[in-house]
Amino acid sequence: MKLNFIKMALILGLLSCVGPVAIDMYLPALPDIAQDLGAPIEAAQYTLISYFVAFGVCQLFYGPASDMFGRKPPLYFGLVLFTLASIGCALAPSIEALIALRFLQGVGAASVMSIPRAVIRDYYTGTQATRLMTTVMLVISISPMLAPLIGSTLIVPFGWRSVFLLIALLTLASLLLAVTSLPETLHHHHRVPFRLNAMLGAFSTLLRDPVYVGLTSIGGLGIASFFSFLATASFLYTDFYGLTPTEFSLAFALNALGFFISSQFAANLGARFGSVVVVKWATAGFAISSLVMCMVVFWGNDQFLLLVAMLLTCNIFLGLVIPTSMVLSLEEHGPIAGTAAALGGALQMLLGALAIVLTSLVFDGTPLPLTAAIAVCGVSSLIISRLTLRGIAHLVVPY
């Protein structure tokens, strides 16, 4: 693997960690936040929802902005805003203030969701793009592996507010990395001047492309299943199963391990069998494993180790579904890669936020609502993949 390829993967991966770190590192603190600010569990979960809504919607602006001004200026803006909002979260006097500041965090974090995906498309297409995407995801795996553990380590001696101060410091380091090491990948002669009609036209082109919409939905359902887990895991693991914050962090990392290990095989499998085939079979595996998990829990077998093993299996298939579907959705939209990545990311984050709302409404402290939500996502992704990719061996999307 070329040195420049590895360097770009490290840079994009570390930048892309900013958003997940703001989720994963504070998850162990959710019960403490609710208790300290005198808020119910549902209000603490709203800090996740507000973050994801902003995280999703604002990508619609960062994508076109990166097509107009280049990739780096919007990235700088987002990282600065994220840093300031993180400091504000550490000082939040009430749950309402924390919810609002988490929304601002999401506004800033949206920049590191859509722009790195556009940078990947600037460099590569096809299998090479999938390989870079999965390598980036390997770097991102630092977050679910280490962030909850670091967060739980900080919470005990310093309280939950220290988590947001550390997030602010890490974001400043990411900003420095972007300034000094990330090249501008969109040259001036490829930039698109701002025209509202052109932006709306690009959105219209994408939304009328059934393959783009289908692949975006498949990836979004995979993300939604994980967001359902995020919304309930800290309460489920600590209250229902009696885990300590540190034990929760280790269990969370184990669940994420399957995703990131399998994602490293996505490019090789795509090169051998074709990316479309990988998506079809991986969605089938995700649907079957999630249905089995839901039925096992429904029948009363909710042992902790068994649940972790079944979640791990689901995540193994998600590690193939999400990066491959993301790359495929951009494959035929190179001239508007920033806009395509932004719209796809926005739709996926909003689908994830909806999953959090619905799962929170039915969450009763047991594993059944979570496993049911994941099963719905799994079966839906399978149905959409069969409808979208029926008879398609390669992608040809007309403009």
Results as ranks from 00 to 15, higher is better:
M1P: 00
I6R: 11
V21D: 13
Y26G: 02
L27W: 01
L37E: 05
A44C: 04
T47A: 04
S50C: 01
D67Y: 01
D67M: 01
M68S: 12
G70P: 02
F77P: 00
G78P: 05
L79M: 15
L79T: 05
V80N: 06
L81W: 13
P93K: 03
P93T: 00
P93C: 10
S94H: 06
S94R: 03
E96V: 10
E96G: 12
A100K: 06
V107I: 15
V112C: 10
V112H: 04
P116E: 09
P116H: 09
A118L: 06
Y124V: 07
T125F: 04
G126D: 04
Q128L: 01
I140T: 10
S141W: 01
S141A: 15
P144M: 09
M145T: 08
A147F: 11
I150L: 15
I150P: 06
S152N: 11
L154T: 10
P157F: 13
V163P: 00
F164G: 07
L165E: 11
S174K: 07
L177W: 11
V179F: 15
V179Y: 14
V179P: 00
L182R: 10
E184P: 08
H188Q: 11
H188F: 07
P193G: 05
N197F: 13
A198D: 08
M199S: 06
A202E: 10
T205S: 13
V213Y: 15
G219C: 09
G222P: 03
F227K: 03
L230R: 00
T232I: 05
L254H: 03
L254C: 12
G258W: 02
F265I: 02
V279T: 04
K280T: 11
K280G: 03
A282Y: 00
A282G: 04
T283M: 12
A284E: 01
M295F: 15
V296M: 13
G300D: 10
Q303G: 14
L318M: 12
E331N: 07
I336V: 12
A341H: 06
A341T: 02
A346Q: 08
L351C: 14
L351F: 09
L354C: 15
S360F: 03
F363H: 09
F363A: 07
D364L: 06
L368K: 01
P369F: 13
T371H: 03
V379P: 00
L389C: 08
I392E: 14
H394R: 12
V397D: 04
